[in-house]
């Protein structure tokens, strides 16, 4: 079937079977490799993207569900001022190790700051609860998100 949606601000139309996960559609059919596959079961958050501005795990979203909606990956936020601040804080605070969780974590953090630019530490922890990171122990990630929020 044909699916039309907005990907990072651009209108696109792709052919996809009804049971195709958005994650696979993005990675394999559209070549968006920044979206990572860690579990395909909604458990790790590595595949997090924005669907109409809200973070979702793209492995659990089926292609037809994005019909007529807006999908945003970090590729679409490169110059966004919130993302620029987040990215800088992640770099400075050492919040990135292997980097496999990073795109997903940044998307969740971005969604948090968009809705709540001055979150508490507990709100930060809650916002990224669904993004597992096995490298950093979250300490630097939480710190970086709070730093970015201070600079907004």
């Amino acid at each position: 079937m044909k699916v039309s949606f907005q990907l990072n601000g651009k209108d696109i139309e792709v052919e996809a079977p009804g049971n195709r996960a958005l994650l696979d559609l993005l990675r394999d059919d559209l070549g968006v490799k920044s979206v990572k596959k860690g579990c395909e079961n909604g458990e790790c958050g590595a595949c997090t993207v924005l669907l109409d501005g809200a973070p979702v795990t793209s492995c659990l979203v089926l292609a037809p569900q994005v019909e007529g909606r807006a999908v945003t990956t970090i590729d679409g936020l490169v110059d966004d001022p919130f993302m620029v601040k987040l990215r800088q804080a992640f770099l400075e605070d050492g919040a990135i190790q292997c980097g496999f969780c990073t795109p997903g974590v940044l998307i969740s953090s971005y969604a948090l700051l968009k809705g709540n630019p001055k979150p508490t530490a507990d709100e930060v922890k809650k916002a990224i609860e669904g993004n597992l990171c096995r490298c950093t122990g979250y300490v630097a990630i939480i710190k970086a998100i709070l730093h970015a929020s201070e600079r907004i």
Partner: peptide, 14 residues
């Protein structure tokens, strides 16, 4: 700042 961090933050690390 890690030399590989920017690529990772941009989702461009392979």
């Amino acid at each position: 700042i890690r030399t590989d961090a920017l690529d990772k933050a941009l989702g461009r690390a392979k």
